[in-house]
Write a protein that binds this DNA or RNA. Structure first.
Length: 960
RNA sequence: GCCGGUGUGGCGAAAUGGCAGACGCACAGGACUUAAAAUCCUGGGACCGUAAAAAGUCGUGUCGGUUCGAGUCCGACCACCGGCACCA
């Protein structure tokens, strides 16, 4: 253990936390707000800085991924990111930026609900308890959050706006020509006005064939058709589709929440089950979600994960005529150049043509295979991937280029959910098709010649030269793969056999859950005159839609969501019924960063002014919005969130969903940027002391509360940053905390008089005064601290530190910034006289990292100045709050040395270090190097071929 | 299999192509102390030397290349971590 306490952090930290709270020191101000004169922000920027007509200070929006307040409390991983952002928030505040640094709770979620099912305790209660714990723990770390902007996704005043955004999605459609979301009213209007849209209208399958026919419909039928049509266009829509159903959780899950055939939460098995569900049309935004990644400053690996998830691939659709049938099978292929090698076709077992084309002889085999496949969980389907299975349907299709009849099979290696659910099999040049063809003795032909003639063409999938690909109309032979793709696609298009297309892996977002603890949908179901069910949005005035009170939070026995138990809530007086699904947890986290901007606004999810100030960039808004903003505008005003810090676990869930919602809000004119998070950094994992991931079962979990009691928040913060680069995974080492704790102790002793410290400790031993903050007044400033001018050497030390810390903070290199401060303190400890001005600047550097001890010493420095040095200049006396003190500037002129130590190398190996004047010319340096006694033995007897002189750096003598 | 990241002392790490190992941990020796804790000082990559030094040689996952000079740039490979994975 640490033994004697290094300094009284147990008194200092609560004292300053309370002070910041009471003064609302870190409150950020919205446009139009008047800042009280005594607030440190007003002292720095003026009380009317945010008033209309004033140029407000440049903003800096720095955001943490808000936590899910679990019952387990904070772990040491949480404060890692929070400390990094807090240091930058405090640093930017010192640099004069108006910092928005908020915190809140992503509090809907399964654990509170499962606890409710077990114990009957309302999830609200569990959530409130957990939030209280998290808040206490986070506050004890002294972060400079603006708590007036705290959000809680489960607060009706918050989720009212989540529901409001859902209504925006519901009442919008995607216009492919404009490539953007539009209000659904435009589509309704266009139906009757715009001829091309009329066609679209007419061609919808569920409608009568002609516009005239449409007009002849009775009003009720027309209204029904209209509802159906619009329902099919909305960004939020209902579909009956196979979804992931998790029996144990009693809910459906999104693709993103299913990992290896199991639920991401709990690891329970999931099965495919057709159910009526709400979906969000994220696929319409696939291209923008992909291409806009190029405009934001995110880690490449994270962008790559999103790109993979979106999974864009360019290729062609090709239609194959089914023999003896009117029907066609359309396939998607990225290799149209290999069309001549397509010797069979495969449909996914779920493909809708399967039953239609299967011949009577094959019917039993096909039925059996289909039954087998549905029984398999997805896990089994992928685990058994090595061995291909499938059945012949008995039907044939015609290859459009070879005109040959090719057999149509079904196999579960073709997925119903990707492309068209059907493939043309080219066993010569596709690994899977090759395996399948080998197993079932299907013909394999070569159509690509590998560049290296020694390479076996069987199953060769790379690019090469096309062979065996000629018919009466077209020949691809001799072309490269790329050329052949272009040529055959053009030919297919000209003949109506297909066309160029782009396919995405991204699926629409399954947006409903059979849960209690989530946002209810602002939707009711009604029946039209012919008794058909249709959905209708509630008006904005009906928001928030609160969940009903329940005694039992389980789903109903017949599989209805828990909300269905509240019959008096579900059934409305007019005969309509409420939607009983709830939204997924992601709903609240999709837009919370916008609510922070104007967290208490009862009239809008965010006011236009607040959104403009915090998210827009003055520079960015002047630029044409249709062009992408440059990834990093060197100046200090950036669009969107300036910095977002969090773990990689949200790479394809939260971060993709939030970008999607943001784009819809952008299209509809509610936000001013295309992207929400301009720069994003992933913090690395903190591993256990044993180098393994921390987990209860390993017993290597470190509880932050224990560390705080032993070493204090400042040491904890410092250690989290000193461990290594933020983005890296690194093992925890409590001994390392002691190291930075000792450093803070040295800082303390640099400032505090030893004699007074002894008095303080004696006073503290009395039981009744132990926790008394007034005791801190006993402590006096070290007598070696004097109001004297700094020596050149002292200035050099200080300015080298300012330079290093400033540059390292700009580059988020917290660990090396801390080591620079350690070097400073080690050096300053040796000074007999310590100039106040130097120590004062040092405290400003230290403050972002260790704010409590810095504030305490700052206060001591200034109160002591007022008592003892009343004649001091105002510059060194300025006692404005440390949190808003101006960041010191370094003067490079002070860092210049008059003599330098210059290494002398012979053939690149270090042989000596010589002293030289800073302005020594090359001839002088060369002479000095040649004269070096230590280098001489390596030069003597050899000829000097050349001498490399890097001014102020190095001399290298090359001999031969 | 594909994509991304990382390999440097006993450990966490640091190094615009220019003195490898700053800073810290752990360790060892010393000072202070009745003693301990705390604090302060000193030491340290390996090898070879030596009474102790000095000098020297090797050294940033492996092999090769570019360069006067490579932890850093290029090529091939190996190991570990993370993600994706029958995506046509």
């Amino acid at each position: 253990m640490s033994g004697r306490r290094q300094y009284p952090f147990h008194l200092i930290e609560p004292k300053w936390q309370q002070h910041w709270d009471e003064q609302q020191t870190f409150r950020a101000w919205n446009p139009g707000e008047v800042v009280p004169e005594n607030h440190p922000f007003a002292q720095r920027h003026g009380g009317d800085a945010m008033a209309a007509g004033h140029q407000p200070p440049p903003k800096y929006y720095i955001l943490d991924m808000f936590p899910y307040p679990s019952g387990a409390g904070l772990h040491v991983g949480h404060p890692e990111g929070y400390t990094a952002t807090d240091i930058l928030a405090r640093y930017q505040r010192a640099r004069g930026r108006h910092v928005l640094h908020p915190m809140g709770w992503d509090a809907f979620g399964l654990p509170a609900e499962q606890y409710a099912i077990k114990t009957g305790q309302h999830p609200r209660k569990t959530t409130e308890t957990n939030i209280a714990t998290f808040k206490r723990q986070i506050k004890s770390l002294g972060f400079s959050y603006d708590w007036t902007r705290e959000v809680d996704t489960t607060d009706p005043e918050y989720f009212k706006w989540s529901q409001w955004i859902f209504l925006k999605l519901y009442n919008s459609y995607f216009d492919p020509e404009l490539n953007k979301a539009q209000p659904i009213e435009l589509l309704e209007d266009a139906l009757s006005e715009n001829p091309t849209r009329k066609n679209e209208w007419k061609n919808n399958a569920f409608l009568v064939g002609t516009h005239e026919g449409w007009l002849s419909l009775k009003e009720t039928a027309r209204s029904q058709a209209r509802n159906l049509f619009l329902a099919g266009k909305r960004l939020a829509f209902v579909t009956e589709a196979p979804v992931w159903w998790c029996e144990q959780l009693g809910t459906v899950l999104a693709n993103e929440e299913v990992v290896d055939g199991k639920s991401e939460v709990g690891g329970f098995p999931v099965v495919r089950k057709p159910m009526r569900q709400w979906m969000l049309r994220i696929t319409a935004f696939a291209e923008r979600l992909l291409s806009d990644l190029d405009t934001i400053d995110w880690p490449e690996s994270l962008k790559e994960m999103q790109r993979n998830w979106i999974g864009r691939s360019e290729g062609a659709e090709v239609h194959f005529q089914i023999s003896n049938s009117e029907s066609q099978i359309t396939v998607f292929t990225t290799r149209p150049d290999t069309l001549f090698g397509a010797t069979y076709m495969v449909l996914a077992p779920e493909h809708k043509l399967v039953d239609q084309i299967t011949t009577p002889e094959q019917r039993d085999a096909v039925a059996k295979y289909k039954a087998d496949v549905t029984k398999k969980s997805d896990l089994e389907r992928t685990e058994l991937a090595k061995d291909k299975t499938g059945v012949f349907t008995g039907a044939y299709a015609i290859n459009p280029v070879t005109k040959q009849q090719v057999p149509i099979w079904i196999a579960d290696y073709v997925l119903a959910s990707y492309g068209t659910g059907a493939i043309m099999a080219v066993p010569g040049h596709d690994t899977r098709d090759f395996e399948f063809a080998e197993k079932f003795n299907l013909p394999i032909v070569q159509v690509v010649q590998p560049p290296d003639s020694k390479t076996d063409w069987h199953g060769f999938t790379d690019d090469g030269t096309v062979v065996n690909s000629t018919n009466a109309e077209i020949s691809l032979d001799g072309l490269t793969t790329a050329e052949a793709k272009t040529k055959i696609t053009a030919w297919l298009e000209s003949r109506g056999f297909g066309k160029k297309t782009i396919n995405y892996k991204l699926r629409d977002w399954l947006f409903s859950r059979q849960r209690y603890w989530g946002e209810p949908f602002p939707i009711v179901w009604k029946r039209d005159a012919s008794g058909n069910l249709y959905h209708e949005a509630l008006p904005e005035s009906a928001l928030p839609v609160l969940p009903p009170k329940l005694d039992d939070y389980k789903p109903t026995p017949d599989g209805q969501p828990p909300l269905a138990r509240a019959q008096d809530w579900v059934n409305l007086p007019d005969g309509s019924t409420r939607e009983t699904n709830t939204m997924p947890q992601w709903a609240g986290s999709c837009w919370y960063y916008l609510r922070y901007l104007d967290a208490k606004n009862p009239n809008a999810f965010v006011s236009k002014d607040a959104e403009n100030y915090w998210m827009g960039s003055r520079r960015g808004n002047e630029a044409d919005k249709s062009t992408n903003p440059p990834p990093h505008v060197g100046g200090y005003e950036t669009p969107g969130v300036d910095l977002y810090v969090g773990g990689t676990e949200h790479a394809v869930l939260h971060l993709l969903y939030a970008r999607f919602w943001h784009k819809v809000l952008f299209d509809l004119g509610y936000v001013s940027t295309r992207e929400p998070f301009f720069k994003l950094v992933n913090q690395g994992l903190i591993l256990g002391e044993d180098g393994q991931k921390m987990s209860k079962s390993r017993g290597n979990v470190v509880n932050p509360d224990d560390i705080l009691v032993e070493y204090g928040a400042d040491a904890f913060r410092l250690y989290e940053m000193f461990m290594g680069p933020l983005e890296m995974s690194k093992p925890w080492n409590t001994k390392g905390v002691e190291g930075v704790y000792r450093f803070l102790g040295r800082v303390w002793r640099l400032f505090v008089d030893e004699q007074s410290e002894t008095e303080f400790e004696q006073a503290e031993t009395t039981a009744e005064t132990q926790r008394c903050r007034e005791l801190l007044d006993i402590l006096k400033l070290n007598l070696t601290i004097k109001d004297v001018p700094a020596t050149p050497a002292q200035l050099k030390t200080l300015h080298a530190t300012i330079k290093k810390v400033t540059e390292d903070l700009d580059g988020m290199r917290f660990n090396t910034a801390i080591s620079a401060m350690m070097v400073f303190v080690n050096e300053a400890m040796t000074w007999e006289t310590k100039p106040i001005s130097v120590l004062r600047d040092f405290l400003i550097l230290l403050a972002p990292f260790a704010p409590h001890v810095a504030e305490e010493l700052w206060a001591k420095l200034h109160s002591s100045l007022i008592t003892h040095h009343s004649s001091l200049s105002s510059a060194s006396l300025s006692s404005a709050s440390l949190s808003y003190a101006e960041w010191p500037k370094f003067d490079s002129a002070l860092l210049v040395e008059d003599t330098l130590e210059i290494p002398v190398q012979v053939n690149g190996k270090l042989r000596d270090v010589i002293k030289a004047a800073i302005d020594a010319d090359n001839a002088t340096l060369e002479a000095a190097a040649k004269a070096s006694e230590k280098a001489k033995p390596f030069i003597d007897g050899k000829t000097i071929k050349k001498i490399i002189i890097v001014p102020k750096k190095l001399i290298n003598i090359v001999v031969g």
